[in-house]
Amino acid sequence: MSAIAIPVEKWSGKVREVTLGATAEQGGTRTKTVTVGGETTLPFLHFEGQLPHPPAIAVEIRDRPPADWSPVLLEAWGDVVNDVTAWARAAEEQGADIVLLQFSLHHDLTADYARQTLRRVLSATGLPLIVFGPGQADIDNEILVAVAEEGKGENLVLGVCEDKNYRTIVAAALAHNHMVNARTAMDVNLAKQLNILISDMGMPVERIIMDPTTGALGYGIEYGYSVMERLRLAALQGDSMTQLPMLVTPGEEAWRTKEARAGEGVPAAWGDWAERAINWETITAGTLIESGADIVVLRHPESVKRIRAMINALMN
C-alpha cells in the first residue's frame, strides 16, 4: 500500500499585513498595536503556509447608551454604557484587542463633541481604536474629519467608507496618517472595486481594511461566508486587490435578530434567551473566522471570551 502524503496546496499570494494603532515611539499614545493579515494559506491550515497573526477581536462601544440594544447586552455591561470612558476601560478588561467607537446619531453629535469623545476614549484605553460614524454621509464626513485631525498620530481606522461616500473620509485619513474601513455589500467584485477606488486616491493598500459585510446566522450568513471564502481564495491566488485583511461585524448583525432581542413570545424550542443570544453572536463570528475574518467586532463580553478561546485553539 502506497503511503498517503499530506495534500499541501501551493498558493502564490499573501494577504497584506496591516498594523492598527501607534505607540509613543511611533508617534501615538497606544500601549500596544495590533497587526493582522500576512496569511499565505487558508484559515488555520498551519501545515501549508504562514498564519503569522491571530484574528483580532474588536469590541463595539457607543458614545451614548444605546437605545435599541437587547436587554441581554445592556445587563452584561451594566452601568458602563452610560459613560464612554468606563465602557472603553471595561472593553479592555474583558479582553478586547481593539476598541471600536461607534458614534450614535443624536443632536449633540458635532465635530467638537466627536473630538472630545475621541480624547476621552484615547485616555481611557491603551488599545488601538476603530472609529465609525453613525452612517449618515454628511454627519460621518463632518465628525470623521474632526476625529482624524484630533487623533493625529494614533493610526486610527476610520469608517465606514462605502462606494457612495468614501472620498472625504479617505482624504482625512490620508492627511493625518490613519487607515480606513471599506465596506461593500457581500459581493467580491464590489469589494475589489471599492479597494481600487480608495487606492486611486493615493491611499496605500496597506492602510485599507475591507469589510465585505455579513448577514447574521439565519439571516444570510451563507452569503457573507461564501464571499469571504472567495475573496480569500482570490487573495491567495495572487489577486492584489483582494489581498487585504477582512473586518466583519457579527456582533451588530447577530444582536439585531429576533433570536437575540426577543425574550418573550418566542417558541420554547429557541431555548434560554441569554444563552441563545450569545450563541447567535459567537456562532456567527466563529463561522466567519473560519472563512477568513481578520477582525471580528463583537458586543457581548461572554462572546469575547468564547471567541478568544476558539482563536487560541485554532492558532496554538
Binding site: R276, T287, R306
Partner: peptide, 30 residues
C-alpha cells in the same frame, strides 16, 4: 463553536455531549 466548525468544515456525523435548545437551534440554522 466546535460543532459549528464541523458543520462548515467537513464533519459528516457530529456528536454533541448534551442537548440544550439554546445550543441546537443556532447549530441547526447554521
Amino acid at each position: 463553536l466546535l460543532a459549528g466548525q464541523h458543520i462548515a468544515k467537513y464533519g459528516g456525523f457530529i456528536i454533541l455531549d448534551s442537548f440544550s435548545p439554546a445550543t441546537v437551534y443556532p447549530l441547526l440554522v447554521l
